[in-house]
Computed example of a mutant assay.
Amino acid sequence: MGDSGTTELYLQEDTYSALAFKPVPGVHGPHSWGMALLGDPEIRLTTVPKAIEFHRGIEGSRKQLHLQSLRNYWVERVRDLPGMQILTPDDTARHGAVTSFRLPAMRDYTQAQKMATLLLKKHRVLTVARTGIAQGSAVRVAPTLYNTHQELDRLVAALRQESGAFV
């Protein structure tokens, strides 16, 4: 569920000169710069300082409760699917928002990748295939602070529609 177009980038002040920076039109200020790195002119970091400021203004325990409620929202709606295994414990002391699931046919990484690709391409839901997990591969769902119940409903509907092919 994460945003595939955003990433966090930390640069030390003395490394700026090693990168190809260019100004962002119409934006001014000490943190209002755009960046072309590795030839990609679409990378923009103009909102990172504002995002950091916003996150610092929200108490950590409030973030945790919200993320856990998002996790529980979708998990409660798919737990009854035939063969569905929720691989993250329900105990809130043992999870945040990230939760992996597995269906019976996902015993290898190829099948987990197939599900993650299907969720993204057909349903526009970003998940990640995981390997190295006991008893087979799985798919990881990672709601973020800004995800809505409507977006999670799309995940739930997608899992309900596609899970039969993985049983």
Score class of each variant (00 low, 15 high):
residue 73 Y to V: 03
residue 55 H to R: 11
residue 42 E to V: 00
residue 93 A to I: 04
residue 2 G to E: 12
residue 13 E to Y: 11
residue 31 H to F: 13
residue 61 S to V: 15
residue 16 Y to S: 05
residue 9 L to V: 15
residue 50 K to H: 13
residue 56 R to G: 02
residue 135 Q to S: 15
residue 131 T to Y: 13
residue 83 G to S: 02
residue 135 Q to I: 05
residue 53 E to D: 14
residue 122 K to Y: 01
residue 46 T to L: 05
residue 62 R to W: 07
residue 81 L to A: 11
residue 11 L to E: 09
residue 8 E to Q: 14
residue 109 Y to A: 01
residue 107 R to H: 02
residue 27 V to W: 06
residue 22 K to V: 00
residue 121 K to P: 01
residue 80 D to T: 13
residue 165 A to T: 05
residue 137 S to L: 00
residue 117 T to I: 00
residue 119 L to E: 06
residue 119 L to W: 06
residue 130 R to P: 04
residue 41 P to R: 08
residue 134 A to H: 09
residue 136 G to H: 08
residue 33 W to K: 14
residue 59 E to L: 10
residue 137 S to D: 01
residue 151 E to G: 04
residue 43 I to Y: 06
residue 45 L to K: 08
residue 83 G to R: 10
residue 90 D to Q: 09
residue 162 E to Q: 14
residue 16 Y to R: 13
residue 54 F to L: 15
residue 46 T to G: 05
residue 50 K to N: 13
residue 88 T to A: 13
residue 80 D to G: 05
residue 50 K to I: 12
residue 78 V to N: 09
residue 28 H to C: 06
residue 4 S to D: 12
residue 12 Q to H: 15
residue 8 E to P: 10
residue 120 L to E: 05
residue 165 A to Q: 09
residue 116 A to H: 06
residue 75 V to A: 14
residue 75 V to F: 07
residue 43 I to T: 04
residue 66 H to W: 06
residue 157 A to I: 10
residue 111 Q to W: 00
residue 153 D to E: 10
residue 6 T to F: 09
residue 63 K to G: 11
residue 10 Y to G: 14
residue 122 K to F: 04
residue 154 R to F: 05
residue 151 E to Q: 15
residue 166 F to Y: 10
residue 145 L to V: 04
residue 31 H to T: 14
residue 101 F to K: 12
residue 60 G to P: 06
residue 81 L to H: 12
residue 155 L to Q: 01
residue 135 Q to N: 15
residue 80 D to H: 09
residue 146 Y to V: 07
residue 85 Q to P: 01
residue 54 F to T: 12
residue 17 S to L: 12
residue 22 K to Q: 02
residue 50 K to F: 12
residue 129 A to E: 07
residue 158 A to V: 14
residue 98 V to F: 06
residue 11 L to M: 07
residue 47 T to S: 14
residue 76 E to W: 03
residue 16 Y to V: 09
residue 23 P to Q: 05
residue 69 S to I: 07
residue 16 Y to T: 01
residue 167 V to E: 01
residue 135 Q to K: 13
residue 143 P to R: 03
residue 55 H to W: 07
residue 150 Q to R: 07
residue 162 E to K: 09
residue 90 D to P: 13
residue 107 R to V: 01
residue 2 G to I: 04
residue 29 G to E: 01
residue 60 G to W: 11
residue 149 H to W: 00
residue 74 W to S: 07
residue 94 R to G: 01
residue 91 D to N: 15
residue 100 S to L: 00
residue 88 T to L: 10
residue 28 H to R: 08
residue 43 I to M: 08
residue 23 P to L: 11
residue 155 L to S: 00
residue 12 Q to Y: 12
residue 37 L to I: 14
residue 9 L to A: 15
residue 104 P to Q: 06
residue 115 M to G: 00
residue 28 H to M: 12
residue 137 S to F: 00
residue 151 E to F: 10
residue 73 Y to T: 03
residue 108 D to V: 00
residue 116 A to I: 02
residue 67 L to Q: 09
residue 97 A to D: 08
residue 97 A to K: 04
residue 104 P to L: 08
residue 96 G to K: 13
residue 158 A to T: 15
residue 45 L to R: 13
residue 118 L to R: 09
residue 76 E to C: 08
residue 64 Q to C: 08
residue 145 L to N: 06
residue 76 E to G: 07
residue 112 A to H: 00
residue 90 D to R: 13
residue 17 S to R: 13
residue 146 Y to R: 03
residue 162 E to I: 11
residue 124 R to F: 05
residue 80 D to W: 05
residue 131 T to P: 04
residue 149 H to M: 01
residue 53 E to K: 10
residue 144 T to F: 08
